[in-house]
Design a protein around this nucleic acid. Structure first.
Lengths: 244, 244
DNA sequence: GTGGTTCAATGGTCCAACCAATTTCTGCAT
DNA sequence: ATGCAGAAATTGGTTGGACCATTGAACCAC
């Protein structure tokens, strides 16, 4: 590890100050995800702070997924960090899968519709072409693999979010999507999950290409509605089979 | 603090085990948000684990917003906790500029409208009464303090999110709100920021009380639109004064 | 009662070890 | 030289004990 400057911490609110200093250090050294950051012991020494305090600070970053600790090896950067990050810890009380999924879908309904509308307003020729490309890939996969096109489906939606001009849409919906998938691994008995949503991908694309925000929003809402229906059907099936 | 049972921890992955045990304890004792949980020293003793380990575990929960620590007082539950929670920490970069704020507003527009609509559908008598109470408090503060009612304003909105039946709304918008406030502290030259949004609080409430989702959504959109206007005016002012 | 003061409880920080996993180095056998 | 097993160093994980800073309640003088 090369030479580096880390000015000592001054006042109270230590661990916050530690994170701030560390964030500044990461920027200064232009550390990228995957790289190792200084030892806890070294950080403690340079920051004139106890190792315990350093650990609590790093524990916070670890909890946020910014950093990964490997015993015996070191602490590694896991995502880009900047001094002005906003942390949004979302906690979903699991328990009953169905209501949890429905809640993520409610968020997704709101954001998906808005993103589609913004996309219809802002997307340029290049973005529209990219969306169409993803759409073609998805439709191809759908037909050749009898409806198993979850991956390509997701890429289509991501292209829409990106073209909305607001990266927050993609980040937040991606979080919802991941949450969704933790259950989805074992689908809930509905084999053709997502089939009903298929035709709306093209209608959404058409409304976007026509720069028709209200139309795009309406089609996006229809798509989410089909997913909600599938989910409800799955929940009903589950309840029946739970009777054993 | 009454008698309670906390079996000792066994294997490695201590702090995770601590959290699991703690979650179980919270359930068993039916602790609700706002209540105090055992002191770190007691937890360490009962779980047969060092106090430092307990602290790291609690630090994680604190980072997730599940718990709040008050030096000299204790550690308090801040949200419902169940043994099977899903955590989705989301960190958003940047946002300390005009475009960043506008982006958070786009998210908020989508969610605020949906939350208001869902609230109009689902809110029961008790929830509606609570919203009205917050509204009265806000209007009172607004008139007696010449429009300085940001705190009460925010509480009104939170009441709406809670009544939407989906805690994710409150969690996500709260994060947006915090980001927003990093600017708001030193306002952008617009002294009467938020004035224009005032009347829409009551109209939103009326539409909710009338169980009129579409009306509530429409009023929520109007409210956000006024905030966007304020923001644009502020940005314009800022640009002028930046010329020096 | 009112307004300080004292004091115990509690979270925050520090220190100095030791444990456990990992990586690196060393030296011997091939 | 090469390769590999074992020792040593590195690094995060845990422990126990100490002290500081803040809070809140009990107490006391007025």
């Amino acid at each position: 590890m090369t030479e580096f400057s880390l000015p000592p911490i001054q006042t109270t609110a230590r661990d916050d100050a530690v994170l701030k200093a560390l964030a500044g250090f990461v920027m200064q050294e232009a550390l990228r995800p995957g790289q190792r950051l200084p030892t806890e012991r070294i950080l403690a020494e340079r920051l004139k702070v106890s190792r315990n305090t350093v650990r609590e600070a790093l524990t916070r970053w670890e909890g946020l997924g910014l950093v990964e600790r490997r015993q015996g090896s070191g602490t590694y950067l896991k995502a880009a960090v900047s001094p002005d990050m906003l942390h949004m810890p979302l906690t979903l009380a699991g328990g009953n899968d169905f209501t949890g999924l429905m809640r993520t879908l409610e968020i997704r309904r709101a954001l998906e519709a808005e993103a589609a509308a913004l996309c219809a307003i802002r997307a340029g020729k290049a973005e529209i072409a990219e969306i169409e490309r993803k759409l073609d890939i998805m439709e191809e996969a759908f037909h050749s693999r009898a409806g198993m096109s979850a991956e390509e489906d997701w890429e289509f939606h991501q292209a829409v979010y990106r073209a909305s001009g607001n990266p927050l849409f993609e980040q937040i919906i991606a979080a919802m999507h991941e949450l969704f998938h933790r259950f989805w691994e074992h689908p809930l008995g509905v084999r053709d999950f997502g089939h009903a949503s298929f035709p709306f991908h093209r209608t959404i694309y058409e409304r976007i290409a026509a720069h028709d925000p209200d139309g795009a929003r309406a089609e996006a809402l229809k798509l989410i509605a089909t997913v909600e229906d599938d989910l409800k059907r799955g929940a009903a099936n589950l309840k029946l089979s739970d009777l054993k």
